[in-house]
Amino acid sequence: MLSAIAKSLFAGLISFLLAGPAMAHGAFVDVAAVDAVGIHARYDTGEPMADAQVAVFAPDALTQPWLVGQTDAEGQFLFTPDDRAGRWAIQVRQAGHGAMGYVELSTEGTAMAITAITASAGLTWAQRLLMLACVLWGAVGTALYFRRAHAGKPA
């Protein structure tokens, strides 16, 4: 029985380590600084988040959207923030999936500078290994529990 469990765990380990970033259906937001702020929202498969809801939050009002809109068919949205300096938050949501993006607006005299703040996407190898260790620990513990429960019963 344990050899079948070991084979299954080994197969799971190999498939987990070789799997690409599209193991789950997540969402990403790419933010680019131009004369305005351009957003490209997409799923982790690369498919654009077409017609997704966009909410832009000003630095001094993070509970009430400053602007609400919708992405186009390619998952893109463009807006020009007003002159409030600080971190602007952009939220994109569609069908239960969503992501956040941020831009930092700084004003020096009459000049305005917009800097995109990128967020990391996907799992690192350390995170994958930690999750794998947790799954293996749970599988071994479950196997030992059932082995102990059946060891005391007569056949």
Rank of each mutant, 00 (worst) to 15 (best):
Q76K: 15
Q76M: 15
Q76I: 14
Q76C: 12
L78P: 03
F79T: 03
T80M: 13
T80K: 15
P81D: 01
D83H: 12
D83T: 13
D83I: 09
R84L: 10
R84S: 05
A85L: 06
A85D: 01
R87Y: 03
W88F: 08
W88R: 06
W88S: 00
W88Y: 10
A89D: 01
A89N: 02
A89F: 02
Q91R: 05
Q91N: 09
V92Y: 11
A95K: 09
H97R: 08
G98I: 08
G98E: 10
A99V: 03
A99D: 15
G101Y: 11
G101D: 08
Y102C: 00
Y102L: 00
Y102I: 00
V103A: 02
E104W: 09
L105R: 12
L105T: 10
E108M: 12
E108G: 09
G109L: 13
T110E: 09
T110Q: 15
A111M: 07
M112D: 05
M112E: 07
A113M: 02
A113N: 09
I114V: 14
T115Q: 09
T115W: 01
A116M: 08
A116G: 07
I117N: 09
T118L: 06
T118G: 06
A119E: 13
S120C: 00
S120Y: 00
S120E: 03
Q127V: 01
Q127E: 12
Q127P: 01
R128M: 07
R128I: 04
L130C: 02
M131R: 03
M131C: 05
L132T: 06
L132K: 02
A133M: 10
V135Q: 05
V135F: 14
V135W: 13
G138W: 12
V140S: 07
V140K: 02
G141W: 15
